[in-house]
Design a protein around this nucleic acid. Structure first.
Lengths: 344, 344
DNA sequence: ACTTATCGCTAAATCGATTGAGCAACAACT
DNA sequence: AGTTGTTGCTCAATCGATTTAGCGATAAGT
């Protein structure tokens, strides 16, 4: 029940707790503890299976060896995968992860930040919601180690790791045009999330680079708060509202999934009646018939970089800012073949 | 940087830290602290935004208000969704969640348990791997609040929350027979996970109830450790090895996903050439053409029950054991319609 | 012989909250 | 007056590890 403490070891070794602490923290040399005593202590610690009490240590040192992970939705394919690798990588450095989902809700995000501060996490990995600026600023001001994930706040220079959203969307749009599609629509969300904005910008930039312009009516913005059913209905009427629509781009995975449902309900065939690209990959996109072309994010790289940057902050408290932008990859699948029967 | 401590409040209020502690813990009445002093302290605490230091509190009380969540794979649709709701529900009780994935690897599971003990979590939610019995037994012996998730250990009476795997699989098999399929195969994993065994048992029981028996060659066991590619190849040759195969059941979602890939690579059409059912639901199953019939687990209920049971343990330390078995639902989709063109 | 240095280790304070024991002041009662 | 009770609060120990300051003993230097 009760654990073995440093005192128990001290008593059995016939030395003081101080000495035990020095030895167990690898400061034997530095503190000039004799070999004999060192060995005796190490042996005893192993024998008694001593595990330092993290609370006591944390109380004294102010470090909890815990990091907070705030994502938009841990159940989302992208974030769940990031969370998995973040946990694995953090573990290598002796850190554990506390997580929470914001649902893109500012209040939830604030709540999570508060709880994590309260819990004295050593560092933060944050997928910021819109308007979280002040809170992030406060963290930054308090010099808390922190990395933003998936998106950043344009007005606040911080560490972040994300994908090149502009380029990813640009490539997608360009590809659609190369494939010969004429009427290309885009579906995004109303929320002012920067990564969504950049995806839209990338898309529009490609359109403008190759076409005379992009009519506003080819752009649909859905509210994040809408229910799944509402969203699907909106997408359906959007699609119906555009005569001769032949391609459509969705700026994130859950929109793409809604999009598939909408198209299906409209009795249209992806790859035949309409070309289809979504940002983010998903099992569904890979295995759908035809496969759904997507802009894939390098999830492993993202997660590893996040931990790398955070550990860097945690250890060397340099003032240097790390902003990592990784390339997104266009995975070409059947959904964008023109006119032919794309089912493979 | 440094937080407001109970001493700061005490000093400003002109009372002792003890008094402040009593008031802030709602023991003002019990400890007969006057109204005036109480109010003054509460006001000050609010004004100074006092946040009790969890480490100090934990060190003294032995409670961390943290629970450990061990799943097989946090990136898996089922576990990711459970994790999300577990976090939300735990939050309502003031608990935070530390998580980790076992990958169904005994050593990883042991490692996670060790770290969580070390971190002094108050309670455990565990998806046990095979052979984790001793460690679970030890936790139980130490009277640690604990709930098993998704599966249980037959030799150890503990709390658990899971779905009725036998019934779910039974229903699936029975449904396939009712639909008129003759040659029905099943794919599961070699691992001795109890929930997998029960799914297989349920399947076999239904077969035996309606048929003369079940030939061993219609059953395929895949190693959990196999790579995705290997698994798909094995499924392909399994399918090819059975002449006139007309239906197939997969005992878990990732197997079902492999199965879809395998069938696709064999140029067969689900719902036309072969009927298809998988345990667990997934976006892919819902949206595939045709929709994949599946045995769906009530994820919300599972997660809520898990927290309920755990909180019960945490608060009243009764010796009562809670074993919750929730019904699984067969979601009928196009993948099992016989002979007709099932694409919708 | 006397100062200074080095070695090997320890005492005690500290982190912040909790809690059992107990104290001063006054009231009530015999 | 003396005992007992009540009220309203405080003292000080405690949880377990870390860390600063420093002590006694021996060795080295002058």
């Amino acid at each position: 029940m009760k654990g073995v403490s440093i005192k128990d070891i001290a008593k059995q070794a016939g030395v003081s707790p101080t000495t035990v602490s020095f030895v167990l923290n690898g400061k034997a040399k530095e503190k000039r503890i004799s070999e004999q005593v060192s060995k005796k202590i190490l042996k005893l610690a192993a024998k008694l299976k001593y595990k330092p009490n993290q609370l006591a240590r944390g109380l004294r040192t102010g470090k909890t060896k815990t990091i907070g992970l705030i994502v938009e939705d841990i159940a989302n394919h992208f974030f769940a995968n990031v969370a998995k690798i973040v946990e694995e990588e953090a573990d290598k450095y002796g850190y554990k992860v506390l997580y929470g989902s914001t649902e893109d809700n500012l209040q939830k995000a604030k709540g999570l930040l508060e709880v994590l501060e309260y819990r004295q996490v050593d560092g933060y990995i944050i997928t910021p919601t819109v308007n979280l600026d002040k809170d992030i600023e406060a963290l930054k001001h308090a010099r808390k180690p922190m990395v933003l994930l998936d998106r950043y706040l344009p007005n606040i220079p911080t560490n972040y790791v994300m994908v090149n959203n502009f380029q990813g969307a640009y490539d997608a749009a360009e590809y659609l045009m190369q494939q010969g599609f004429e009427k290309i629509a885009v579906v995004t969300i109303t929320s002012e999330q920067i990564q969504m904005k950049e995806r839209l910008d990338g898309f529009l930039a490609a359109m403008k680079a190759h076409r005379s312009g992009f009519p506003r009516k080819m752009l649909k913005k859905l509210s994040f708060a809408a229910t799944k059913e509402e969203a699907i209905e909106e997408i359906k009427s959007f699609i119906k509202s555009i005569p001769n629509l032949d391609a459509i781009f969705f700026t994130t995975n859950y929109l793409g999934i809604y999009g598939i449902e909408a198209v299906k309900e409209l009795q249209m065939q992806i790859g035949e009646d309409i070309a289809f690209i979504s940002f983010d990959d998903h099992d569904l996109f890979r295995l759908y018939s035809p496969g759904i072309t997507c802009v894939s994010q390098p999830i492993h790289d993202i997660a590893r970089n996040v931990i790398q940057v955070l550990m860097n902050e945690l250890n060397n408290n340099t003032n240097q800012i790390n902003q990592v932008v990784l390339p997104a990859t266009l995975l070409k699948r059947g959904s964008c073949s023109k006119g032919t029967n794309a089912r493979i």
